[in-house]
Nucleic acid binder design. Sequence first.
DNA 1: GTTGTAATGAGACTCATTCTCATTCTATCA
DNA 2: TGATAGAATGAGAATGAGTCTCATTACAAC
Lengths: 150, 150
Amino acid sequence: MQTFDTVDELHEFVEMLLHRIDQRYTIGRRAVVELLASSERPLSISDIETRVPEIPRSSAYRHLSDLQKAGVVRRIAASDEFARFEMAEDFLHHHHHLLCSSCGQVIDVTPTRAFERTVARMVDELTAAQGFRATSHALDVIGHCANCER
Amino acid sequence: MQTFDTVDELHEFVEMLLHRIDQRYTIGRRAVVELLASSERPLSISDIETRVPEIPRSSAYRHLSDLQKAGVVRRIAASDEFARFEMAEDFLHHHHHLLCSSCGQVIDVTPTRAFERTVARMVDELTAAQGFRATSHALDVIGHCANCER
DNA sequence: GTTGTAATGAGACTCATTCTCATTCTATCA
DNA sequence: TGATAGAATGAGAATGAGTCTCATTACAAC
Ligand SMILES: [Mn+2]
Ligand SMILES: [Mn+2]
Ligand SMILES: [Zn+2]
Ligand SMILES: [Zn+2]
């Protein structure tokens, strides 16, 4: 979490986003948000289960799905079969991912401003010709993390 | 398929890649390769089933998995729950994807040389600090395709 | 406090993908 | 040209991440 001075401001913003879609900011949702906001890497469902075992799996999935609809959370497809979740970009600096194809770990990395300008320009070029309307982009680097790389 | 003058050259190269890992280039594998090589967009298993119904689902999955191990085919996670498959980059120009978050369609797009130079430089910067060894990258643009965009 | 509605928990269910194993190919060599 | 051992295949069972159902619980509004 980077763009909020206090945890209360974070929760206020989350609550507002949930209210927009007529959803309450309940204990369980709050627990998921606090976990994701305090994690420096995207978490899988089993990560979440390990760290907050009192949230049942079915509720965790539902919370994540509701929070995603509200724009609070983002789902990431890693290179293994498990989805990962992180706070949406409104809560974080825009960033990209290193995906380890050995262990599935996802590492956040922040690009330079200059690079993002180039990406934005290219995305416009690439999509214009196709009548495609872009809402976001993702640059994933696939490879092996320091751990898996011997 | 872009980098081969004849279909025979394509098959020769595929056969070599399979032989490297002690695999035979059989009828079923050949059918999958011909389909993917002639498609201008990545295909899902049900796409493949529709176009080559004589290949059983379990064999199609296995062929794709074997071909991926040989470096002939690449698996793509789309924004829906279905994996897509395309020829590996040795068989195609390097390119990126537009992912429609309404219908799941995957559209290939080719970046400029200048853009790829920038990407390559950034990937180096981003990964060096982490001890991460990059093997490839993917730039996905998420949005709505021309069809889904009214 | 009462009450109508939203959220939750437990577990059943779905379905893309993987696995098993009996059968069919096929490369090799006598 | 067979015979044969190992590889590939097909049919269907099994797996398991993710979704759905429904009975119960929490809560906002009055
Ligand atoms: Mn970016
Ligand atoms: Mn690229
Ligand atoms: Zn790793
Ligand atoms: Zn679409």
